[in-house]
Amino acid sequence: MPRSHPPRHPDADAPIAGPARPAQRRWDLAALRRRLAIGLALSAMAILLVLPLVLIFTEALSKGLDIALEALAEPEAWSAIRLTLTVAAIAVPINAICGTAAAWCIGRFEFPGRALLTTLIDLPFSVSPVISGLVWVLLFGANGYFGAWLDRHDVRIVFALPGLVLATMFVTFPFVARSLISLMREQGAAEEEAALTLGANGWQIFVRVTLPNIFWAMLYGVLLCNARAMGEFGAVAVVSGHIRGQTLTMPLYVEALFNDYEWIGAFSVAALLSMLALVTLALRMLLEWRIERDRSAGV
């Protein structure tokens, strides 16, 4: 329902408003203001947020769909896609499981240091992506604290898959825990306590009572975690070493192509990543609607 500003009491401005039909004029003014605000907001969003997206697909397809698909079929492109999927397939489940464990102990128990622990879990969100990569180089890089030891034992972490996974885990660390903790605290422990008095053990309580109640929120966290894991650039850029065909994830491959003036290739891979973003946004809308239902007061 349109909510224009409330009409004023007629007496309030009767002495001021000279023209014949003041009420009519005020209404026009309100409608005008409304249109102006909507128009301004939408054009700003169109230029700032939509135009870049349009450009990506336009550029990718500027020489036709065949050329764009060809760029994606390159062996290096395939290797980037595979690597991105591998990194996400390791980092996301670990963060999801540990995030759920964190939500259980933070959302269901009172203990000293609980607030601190919550803050620590949120911490990666306020750290620059580059620093999120840097910390792993400081630990495991050639000059890092464990660099010499790793070198002697011929273990590669930085400039290899483990480094990419660790950096990705750091930046996607809070997603699942965060979306679950607030929900679990809101829902309260009554259903779990009821299950307990009925004789259920811990695992039964979790699987039969807790999990169905937090399922959609968990999926939501996993969705955002995955989108970030696949799209992360800064943190993995630092630990990747940029070895083509080996340690370039899709976003890093976009960078490499762009810097080599391989315009179509860069935008084709970018378009693929954009589609991931669009699908993520669409699913997110659906999930938010679902979670609202879970959030609405318990029975």
């Binding site: 009821a194 307990l196 318990g298 029975v299």
Partner: peptide, 15 residues
């Protein structure tokens, strides 16, 4: 879980 005591919660806490 081993007490065999039935508890009806104030807000029922149905699943």
């Amino acid at each position: 879980r081993e007490r065999q005591i039935g508890l009806v919660f104030q807000h029922y806490a149905l699943f």
